[in-house]
Design a protein around this nucleic acid. Structure first.
Length: 582
DNA sequence: GCCGTTTTCGGCCCGACTGTTTTCAGTCG
């Protein structure tokens, strides 16, 4: 059993323990352990072999034993028994807004409700309001929550959520009482997908009620969920929730930090504050155990901005993109945070399509767009012939495209590179023969078929292609960008090792704003000296802007500026290709 | 169940809002 599956089971066990009414700290321990497992970069089997598993923070003797059992036998007695004590439907009920483990437990025990359908019938029959602790209002909210669960999709893609958030922020900042405001949450952290929108404002006290009114009356709002003095929440018509927080100027850096998250990052910061005898919350620092509440609490450290806040904790400023509690705090403490890539560092990109295959922009439109961005080069990598679904090019098409590229290169400042996104066939062969591959400036090799191969077979397939001497880089290495599908199973450690051995590049895709590798793999790739690129896999000229999302990927991936520039500079690329620059 | 510069016991992040309470529990982020 792999790490992901084990993390899911531990998470589930934590929830089951909550349903059971176990010691809340015990269930939290399972949730923490789940995250810890998810964050292990090494091999789980190896950790068990060396006995180092319990050295991992958050994994002790008991949970360590459960993990060992899961890895070796694929089962866990404790998990199986826990699972048996509750029907599966209870898990679905957790998705309903306002329903947590405690209430679900009560409904299960008093009315025998074990899934959403039964819950809906009971609420409609007015059976819930009779249960102690439940009332008419709760019953109505449950029905609303059920409707929301059924109509709502999952998370939104970053650009979609970003646009709505900007509209809302803009509307609120029109108010003269607003001193500062920002979009916080996962949007500020530039996660690829976004669960809800968080907006933090600093405003004068007297402006607050007015702002809350303005917010809840915005055309984007479907219905209000909560309205308070400092916080209001609403469901948007776009099917995503938006939370608004309003604080004073003094509190603003703390609130912005707090609501930017991630939750795990915050927990770590608070724990750190405690060790300094301080309590940190969204309003400021106070002396630990002073018993004082908001307003009365003596603020012991004043901060003008987030930089001050991190400094007070003995940390270098941590950019939002890195705030996931995945090692960034330690780096901030030791002053080893990487120099991060900025959008202005981007000189070009390699993975772009045109109307020759499945792109929507013509070659000229793509080239002009790249020139408009001031890029030095643009790599054109249309599909090869096997990718029939994507109108893969024939040899004649390729030749025609080469001529058009030559003509454009004669008059454009941005240099177009002749590339191909060559299919990796199920047996690991490439779609073009070697004698044809060598005619391209560079070759992106990608998997576009037979995604459901077992991990070992998929890994063999990719490695075989990657070791072909004409291949420059591996395209979308885990297939996560294929939005409609699950990522395919592949042993990325082996793939990165192979790339390192053969001097190949592992591509990171940023289109449409999903990153193809998590930062721990990026970090490993960097350590192994595998050059990584950030490519939009653009199909339209405006999608070239997706590369900015690649920048956030790079930041998450701890790619230092020099790595990117080495890989991405035209000189570097052509030197790598052995072609030189004219 | 996990953890330890307050280390083998006793604490574990913390506050807002809602709905049901009449002083608070549950949920959420």
């Amino acid at each position: 059993m792999d790490k992901k599956a084990i993390a899911v089971i531990l998470e589930e066990m934590g929830t089951l323990l909550e349903l059971k009414g176990a010691n809340p700290f015990k269930s939290r321990a399972f949730h923490n352990a789940s995250r810890a497992v998810d964050q292990i970069t090494g091999d789980l089997g190896e950790l068990i072999g060396t006995g180092d598993l319990t050295e991992v923070k958050g994994i002790g003797k008991s949970i360590g034993a459960i993990i060992t059992e899961l890895v070796t036998s694929g089962e866990s007695k404790e998990y199986t028994e826990l699972r048996k004590s509750f029907p599966d439907g209870l898990f679905q009920m957790l998705k309903i807004e306002g329903l947590g483990p405690k209430k679900i437990k009560i409904l299960f025990e008093t009315l025998g409700i074990k899934d959403i359908d039964a819950l809906e019938s009971a609420a409609k029959a007015d059976a819930l309001s009779a249960v102690s602790g439940f009332g008419k209002k709760t019953q109505e909210n449950i029905l609303k929550g059920i409707a929301a669960v059924r109509s709502r999709g999952g998370r939104k893609l970053l650009p979609a959520a970003l646009q709505i958030a900007q509209e809302i922020l803009f509307a609120l900042r029109n108010d003269a009482g607003v001193k500062a405001g920002e979009i916080a949450g996962s949007i500020r952290r530039r996660r690829e997908t976004v669960g809800d929108i968080d907006i933090v404002l600093s405003a004068a006290d007297e402006a607050r009620p007015r702002l809350m009114d303005t917010f809840l009356a915005l055309p984007q709002i479907e219905s209000a969920i909560a309205r308070g003095e400092t916080k209001s929440s609403a469901m948007l018509k776009a099917g995503i929730q938006c939370d608004l927080r309003i604080v004073s100027g003094e509190e603003y850096p703390f609130a912005l930090n707090y609501f930017t998250g991630s939750k795990e990052h915050n927990v770590e910061l608070r724990g750190r504050a405690r060790k300094q005898g301080l309590s940190l919350n969204e309003y400021g620092f106070s002396k630990l155990d002073s018993g004082e509440t908001r307003g009365k609490a003596k603020r012991v450290v004043r901060c003008r901005d987030e930089e001050d806040l991190y400094a007070a904790l003995g940390l270098a400023f941590i950019p939002p993109e890195l705030r996931e509690n995945t090692g960034e705090i330690e780096c901030a403490e030791n002053n080893t945070l990487p120099a991060l890539v900025e959008e202005k560092d981007i000189r070009g990109t390699f993975h772009c399509h045109t109307t020759y295959s499945d792109g929507l922009g013509t070659l000229e439109q793509m080239a002009q767009a790249a020139a408009g961005l001031g890029w030095e080069y643009l790599g054109i990598a249309d599909h090869s012939k096997a990718a029939a679904y994507a109108r893969g090019l024939s040899r004649a098409d390729v030749k025609r495209q080469f001529r058009e590229i030559d003509a454009l290169n004669a008059r454009l400042k941005t240099r177009l590179l002749k590339g191909t996104e060559c299919d990796i066939l199920p047996n690991g062969d490439l779609d073009w023969p070697d004698e044809f591959l060598k005619e391209f400036d560079y070759v992106v090799a990608s998997v576009h078929s037979n995604f459901k191969m077992p991990e070992e077979a998929m890994t063999r397939r990719i490695i075989k292609a990657l070791t072909n001497k004409h291949v420059t880089m591996l395209g979308h290495p885990t297939g996560r960008l294929l939005l409609a599908r699950e990522p395919y199973a592949v042993d990325m450690i082996k793939v990165i090792d192979t790339a390192a051995e053969h001097g190949k590049i592992i591509e990171i895709n940023s289109y449409p704003n999903r990153l193809d590798l998590d930062w721990r793999l990026c970090k490993y790739a960097k350590e192994r000296g595998v050059m990584s690129t950030i490519n939009p896999d653009a199909h339209r000229e405006d999608e070239l802007r997706h590369v900015y999302l690649g920048v956030s990927v790079a930041r998450k991936g701890w790619l230092e500026k020099k790595d990117i520039l080495n890989t991405r500079s035209l000189a570097g690329v052509l030197k790598y290709l052995g072609k030189g620059i004219d």
